[in-house]
Simulated assay, not measured.
Amino acid sequence: MSKFFYGIEDLFVNVLFAPYDFFRFMESWWAANSINWVFFIVGFIAMLYWMQQLKIFDSRGEEDKSISSHSYL
């Protein structure tokens, strides 16, 4: 069973996170954190899209706004 976990470790350390080793040794903070900034921007755009979709459903009146709670309350 330990070989299974060592295999997972090897996958993440030597394969999936290998590009981060390149960025770790850069002198510029901005260049080293460029991947993080890309993820932040993509997440922010996704949040804006999600908020726009919520507004569309709210303006159409398709959202269920009925007040309900558990029967034992």
Rank of each mutant, 00 (worst) to 15 (best):
M1E: 14
M1P: 07
M1L: 03
S2K: 12
F4M: 09
F5G: 02
F5N: 01
Y6V: 00
Y6K: 13
I8K: 01
E9V: 12
E9M: 02
E9T: 04
D10I: 00
D10V: 01
D10W: 11
L11M: 15
L11W: 03
F12I: 14
V13H: 07
V13T: 10
V13E: 08
N14M: 02
N14V: 02
V15T: 08
V15N: 09
L16C: 09
L16Q: 00
L16Y: 08
F17T: 07
F17D: 06
F17W: 11
A18M: 13
A18G: 00
P19D: 04
P19H: 04
Y20V: 08
D21Q: 12
D21V: 03
F22T: 06
F22C: 05
F22P: 01
F22M: 12
F23Q: 02
F23P: 02
F23D: 01
R24Y: 05
F25L: 10
F25H: 09
F25I: 08
M26S: 12
M26H: 09
M26E: 13
E27M: 08
S28Q: 04
S28D: 14
W29A: 12
W29V: 15
W30F: 15
A31H: 00
A31T: 03
A32H: 06
A32S: 15
A32L: 04
A32V: 02
N33K: 09
N33G: 07
N33H: 03
N33W: 08
S34E: 04
S34T: 13
N36K: 03
N36Q: 05
N36T: 05
W37Y: 03
W37K: 07
W37P: 00
V38C: 04
F39Y: 09
F39E: 05
F40T: 13
F40W: 13
I41V: 15
V42C: 07
V42A: 14
V42M: 04
G43F: 10
F44Y: 15
I45T: 08
I45K: 03
I45M: 07
A46L: 08
M47Y: 10
M47C: 09
L48G: 04
L48T: 12
Y49F: 13
Y49E: 11
M51N: 10
M51K: 07
M51E: 06
M51L: 12
Q52Y: 14
Q53C: 03
Q53V: 12
Q53L: 12
K55F: 10
K55M: 06
K55E: 15
I56M: 05
F57M: 01
F57Y: 14
F57V: 05
D58K: 14
D58V: 02
D58W: 12
S59V: 04
S59P: 01
G61A: 00
E62D: 12
E63T: 08
D64I: 04
D64V: 01
D64M: 08
K65C: 03
K65V: 11
S66N: 11
S66K: 07
S66D: 02
I67E: 11
S68I: 13
S69Y: 05
H70W: 15
S71D: 11
S71H: 15
Y72V: 06
Y72P: 01
L73I: 11
